[in-house]
């Protein structure tokens, strides 16, 4: 077994330090070491995006990163999105548009969507779909997810009624 390495990083505004095996995937560090189980694992090939988090403000798939790669980084997970009990506008939009059912893809979907709006505050429907191309959902057919993201961007969903 290889030597453990020392990690320090900020997660949802709190600094953490831990000794981990070098092979520890970031998603497992967040879930199993820090207990932040909101970030989910839905595949093993970087395909589904359930593990999407923000690293220094940008979306990343935490199943395809070593925890070591996030040394010193500022990480936000779904648990860090709602501020003092108030849902983030994206979370609120997902709720109002019924953009979730089983909820498993939801944290990753919400993190991908907020990253998208950070980069493109008024995306078109097509740009929303492109922005979510790396996040799979099995329940919603994406209809209400796309509506939610458009709604969170202050736009109505053309063609997305019902």
């Amino acid at each position: 077994m290889s030597d453990k390495i020392r990690l320090e990083m900020t997660v949802n505004g709190q600094s953490h330090s831990a000794d981990v095996e070098p092979r520890t995937l970031l998603v497992h560090f967040l879930r199993d070491d820090l207990g932040l189980t909101g970030t989910n694992v839905g595949c093993d090939t970087s395909s589904c995006g359930a593990c999407t988090i923000h690293i220094d403000g940008e979306s990343a798939k935490s199943c395809t990163m070593l925890a070591a790669q996030a040394r010193g980084a500022n990480i936000t997970t779904i648990e860090g999105l709602a501020v003092s009990g108030e849902l983030h506008p994206m979370q609120q939009a997902f709720m109002e548009c019924h953009g979730l059912q089983c909820g498993y893809c939801t944290p990753g979907m919400v993190m991908a969507a907020t990253s998208l709006l950070n980069e493109n505050p008024k995306p078109s429907e097509h740009e929303v779909r492109e922005g979510l191309e790396g996040n799979l959902c099995r329940c919603t057919g994406y209809h209400n997810i796309v509506k939610a993201v458009l709604s969170a961007s202050g736009q109505s969903a053309q063609g997305g009624g019902a």
């Binding site: 995006g49 990343a60 798939k61 990253s115 191309e133 790396g134």
Partner: peptide
Amino acid sequence: VGDPAVRHR
């Protein structure tokens, strides 16, 4: 390439 999260990394 890939998807936005992949392109960030």
